[in-house]
């Protein structure tokens, strides 16, 4: 476990925990895309199928449980909680996310490490994670206002992706046959999706102005 990967997992954990705490404390999910949260719940469910059959380490198992629990509770809060659900901006969160799910499923059937159910679901979760942020970015463009917690959420997710790329570079040079093309290509695509958000986030932070995304 190298420092980039640990830092990446921690920022990823931070992004979901900050989001869950925000929703739990202020009982509001304004600015958050339910579609993105649902996609993330599917990503974790599809990726962690081997949770009980394949033990990697205590850390790995605990983190998987935390990610599953937090992503599903965020979806539960946004859909079922009597107060929070009223703050959900469903008129703007209209990205048809099944448009993302189907191509990822087809791609996973075509490109995977082994044509078994678990490997196809794993590849599906990798592809879906790459595009899961899309509805959230669309919502941010639509509503054009980014409250700082939503901004922090996307920022932490972007940071986790950048750290994971550093982790892959480190592992590629230190572990002889560490090659995972599927994760690498999907991970780079995902990180690029954040690139423009990062640019506007850092610019607004530098000029100390409210974060505005271009129309």
């Amino acid at each position: 476990m190298n420092v980039f990967r640990l830092a990446g997992d921690m920022t990823h954990l931070l992004s979901v925990v900050v989001l869950l705490l925000k929703i739990h404390t202020i009982k509001s999910c304004a600015g958050i895309s339910l579609k993105t949260q649902e996609l993330y719940a599917v990503v974790f469910a599809a990726r962690y199928l081997d949770l009980f059959v394949h033990f990697v380490s205590l850390y790995n198992t605990v983190m998987k449980l935390v990610f599953l629990a937090s992503s599903f509770s965020i979806v539960w809060y946004m859909k079922r909680h009597k107060i929070v659900r009223r703050t959900y901006d469903k008129d703007h969160d209209t990205f048809r996310h099944y448009v993302l799910v189907l191509p990822c499923l087809l791609l996973a059937l075509l490109i995977n490490e082994k044509f078994t159910f678990r490997e196809v679901m794993w590849a599906f979760s990798i592809y879906l994670e790459a595009v899961a942020i899309f509805p959230q970015l669309v919502l941010l463009q639509r509503t054009r206002n980014i409250d700082n917690l939503t901004g922090q959420y996307v920022f932490f997710l972007g940071a986790y992706r950048v750290l994971y790329i550093l982790n892959w570079i480190y592992r590629y040079f230190t572990e002889p046959h560490f090659v995972h093309w599927i994760s690498w290509v999907a991970g780079i695509v995902q990180t690029l999706l954040y690139a423009d958000f990062f640019y506007y986030y850092i610019m607004s932070w530098k000029n100390n102005v409210k974060l505005e995304l271009p129309a």
Partner: peptide, 10 residues
């Protein structure tokens, strides 16, 4: 080290 295609990352 774990065999190659073991998914040890989250």
């Amino acid at each position: 080290a774990a065999p190659d295609n073991v998914k040890d990352e989250l």
